[in-house]
Amino acid sequence: MTESIKDSVKAFVIENFLFGDTSQNLADIDSLIENGVIDSTGVLELVAFIEDRYGVTVADADIVPANLDSLDRIAAFIAAKTATKAAA
């Protein structure tokens, strides 16, 4: 489950922030900010993608680097969110 989420997040990041450029070899644990992949507007684009794609609501308090600053963190965050939603 997490792997397929990560794959689709990675595809979104590469398409939307790297414009198809795979030469950066972005690792799953790499910081999106420190690697210049994402800026302040990009974070909001990422949040919109997560909400649209996974049908979850991302609260303001959730928009922190601990949840969203690497592919691993994003995938884990989405997995937890969707699990909470399914349990509700």
Binding site: D39, V64, P65
Partner: peptide, 15 residues
């Protein structure tokens, strides 16, 4: 810059 105004303190520090 509205994109910045909506960010958490953690993100602001990172940016």
């Amino acid at each position: 810059l509205p994109g910045l105004q909506q960010q958490s303190a953690e993100y602001l520090a990172s940016f």
